[in-house]
Computed example of a mutant assay.
Amino acid sequence: MKCRVIGMWGGFPKENGPCSGYLIEQDEFKVLLDCGSGVLTNVQKYVDLNNINHVLLSHYHYDHFSDIGAYLFSRLVNTKIGNTDEALHVYGPDDEEMKRRVEEIEYCEFSTIDKNSELHIGPFRFTFMRNNHPIETYSIKIESGHKKIVYTSDTSYTSKLIEFAADADLLIAESSLYDGMDGSASGHMTSSEAGMLAYQSKAKKVILTHLPHYGELEELLASALNEGNHAIELARPGVLIEL
């Protein structure tokens, strides 16, 4: 499996720095996790949009899904001019308005996910855990063969994450807040909590994502590393992780 970070900023994008988006690949099969602001432009540096036919949305905050509307129109236009003949499949939490928006565009389909869902898409198996966040949000586990990627999406810390992420080959852990801040109300983790999750889950490689637009990110990284797992890095747009 491969994971390419398309974007990782929380809230809003930077210049040439998109919000959440991660391209998961194996044997030329591709799935996009989240499609936040700036993702659709930047993912095209690495892949033709017509070669991604499945998009999983963890939740419906703009920094995780705002580019999906443009993706729907891309599929409509590219199908009509003969560049693709496969529907764009969008998966996300149950929401009638989202289902309507997706399916009112030709050649696009919507399917719901919840904590009991198990999806088999190409070579991948997807399972989900409900997060602590102001709206319905899911952590996503992707497995193929003996490899495992876990993406926390947005959540405050909960011990349930430890079992869900246990022995992940790659843990993509949100780290929206600096050590000493309280993310319980906003539904986000601090850097030390992300580091604690990395250590207790025994993740083999960890990237910190959903990064804040303020403070010194090296301090964020240092406090995460201080929890004991030394295989932690900051996410960077375009970085490719091969498992």
Rank of each mutant, 00 (worst) to 15 (best):
I149R: 06
H213D: 10
M196W: 08
A165R: 05
F128G: 02
D85Q: 03
V206D: 02
P93K: 03
T41V: 13
L32R: 12
G180Y: 12
S156G: 13
L49D: 01
A224F: 13
E242R: 07
S192A: 15
T84H: 08
L72C: 14
P13H: 00
Y199D: 11
T84K: 11
L170R: 09
F124W: 09
I149P: 08
A87T: 12
L217V: 06
E227D: 00
R125E: 15
I232S: 08
S159G: 02
E15W: 07
E163C: 07
L57H: 01
E28R: 12
F124S: 09
V43K: 02
N132A: 10
A194T: 11
T41L: 12
L72Q: 07
V43T: 03
E219L: 14
S111I: 01
Y138I: 04
L33A: 09
V31P: 11
P134Q: 04
S144L: 05
S156N: 12
V5C: 10
G215Y: 14
L119A: 06
L49M: 07
A166K: 15
G21T: 08
G38P: 06
Y107W: 10
I52T: 11
L170I: 13
E218K: 11
A87D: 15
C3D: 00
M98P: 04
D85S: 08
E103C: 08
Y199P: 03
P18A: 06
S139N: 00
L88E: 01
S192C: 09
L33T: 10
Y71A: 14
E136I: 12
N226M: 10
V90I: 15
V239Y: 02
I232L: 08
I207A: 02
D34R: 10
I105Y: 02
L225Y: 01
C35P: 10
K202T: 05
I121A: 10
S192Q: 15
K115D: 10
P13N: 00
E233H: 03
G195D: 06
V102E: 10
Y60K: 05
K30I: 00
L33M: 14
L234A: 04
D27T: 00
M196G: 05
L240V: 12
K2I: 05
N53V: 04
E233S: 11
I162V: 15
S175K: 02
V239Q: 04
N131F: 06
L57Y: 01
L56V: 15
G21V: 08
S117D: 09
S192H: 07
H210L: 11
E193K: 08
G11C: 03
T155V: 06
G21E: 10
L197N: 00
S20G: 13
V90A: 07
V206Q: 02
V39N: 13
D27Y: 00
V43A: 01
N42Y: 10
F73V: 07
R4H: 02
L217Q: 13
G69L: 11
N53D: 15
K160S: 15
E227I: 00
K141C: 12
F73E: 13
S192I: 04
V43R: 00
N83P: 03
Y199E: 14
S156A: 15
L49R: 13
A231S: 15
A224S: 15
N42T: 05
I68Y: 09
I149G: 07
H213N: 06
G228Q: 03
K160P: 03
E163W: 06
P18Y: 04
Q200N: 13
T158R: 11
L225G: 00
I232D: 06
S175Y: 03
V102Q: 09
F126S: 03
